[in-house]
Write a protein that binds this DNA or RNA. Sequence first.
DNA 1: GAGTGGTCTAGACCACGTT
DNA 2: ACGTGGTCTAGACCACTCT
Lengths: 232, 232
Amino acid sequence: MSGAPSSWQVIQDQIRQRISRREWQPGEYIPHETDLAAEFGCARATMNRALRGLAEEGLLERRRKAGTRVALTPVRLARFHIPVIRDEIESKGASFQFSVLHRAIAVPPPDVLTRLQTGADQPQLHLQTLYTANGAPYVHEDRWINLDAVPAARDEAFASFSPNEWLVREAPFDGGDFTLSATAATAHDARVLGCAEGEGLFVLNRTTQAGGAVITSVRMVFHSGYAMHTAL
Amino acid sequence: MSGAPSSWQVIQDQIRQRISRREWQPGEYIPHETDLAAEFGCARATMNRALRGLAEEGLLERRRKAGTRVALTPVRLARFHIPVIRDEIESKGASFQFSVLHRAIAVPPPDVLTRLQTGADQPQLHLQTLYTANGAPYVHEDRWINLDAVPAARDEAFASFSPNEWLVREAPFDGGDFTLSATAATAHDARVLGCAEGEGLFVLNRTTQAGGAVITSVRMVFHSGYAMHTAL
DNA sequence: GAGTGGTCTAGACCACGTT
DNA sequence: ACGTGGTCTAGACCACTCT
């Protein structure tokens, strides 16, 4: 389907099998790169590529001088695609809309001040936006934009581009963090998202930075029933 | 702190800067590997390593014959460490305990049957386990184990090892999927987790496989206030 | 001090897709 | 048909850590 697997991928799969079949026990040292390369009849660089991948997945632990061992605790890491709202909605075949419910310039509350790393006397841009799919509420976004970092936002109406898309275009970020959590729908959440008060809602908090400066801090509350999914 | 950055990392950072500073616009084709390698005075393999990493991050799009371009939509992917409960709790300096609240062999409900890919006439092992940190409820686990795939589970008491840890030891997996969502605490949730009914709780559904066979399907409901966090 | 993985190079061939 | 990225090799030097 997707092309012939390359040599290092084949080798990687073989190694993976030896691990999952317990031919190499957890905690056990496996042969050195050089020996494995000889066994598989490939260059050491190729074997390195295969093993490096497994180490990045957390299946192997490698240390210079010590060697390579099978990880004791297979600490798997899951990859989640961070949603660009429009893409996520349109990829489901639904139509995308948004409306800015609230727009103001004000001093953020303390928790946002901390995240934005701005002063208590510096007003910033506050936006509340509802994104809908086929007209149904999809996610409610409560966003603060650091006007020192993105002064152009002050005069932006967010008519043709949603805050989300506008920022991606105008203020490319190079860092940040995510927090996923849950909350019970408040009366306000319920009204905006069109769900019952008290329902469990999925929440994503996100801060993005560029060159060390925090650009924006956003809290997104998703519609009831929303879930993030990934394969291992 | 963590060693001198290697050449390909330095190069990768330079490229990253050119992108985030808009020296190369989104959608724009950047020079070929060969040319960039010449410009940076490195081997093509080294440049390839740098660019490949950026492509995996979603910052670049590469196609044979076409070339390399800056991604239009920087579809970032976030990496989350999948919690091994004991490690997660102990890494916070808390003590780890667990207790199996319920243990039975029965035919799973329809949704679990689908996930386990077993028949409606095949009883499987059902476990409900509470994990605690310093005695406080941490996560409640509702797990079904496929006895065809893991027959040894039938006679396991899960006294010294939690279901979680026992499975990691006895039935190494090589695939699966995750779903993250939210729910409002039911009366049962509230009682088990010691929270108020109706609170928003974080839920992780997980299915793990080995060699194509589904080993276990589990739903974990975390204590109120739990969050998953990651940096970009 | 010595051994192992980490990285780099120059060159080659191949696979894919048509900026 | 041809150009570009993907992969592989053989050899070399280096960095880190000490099952």
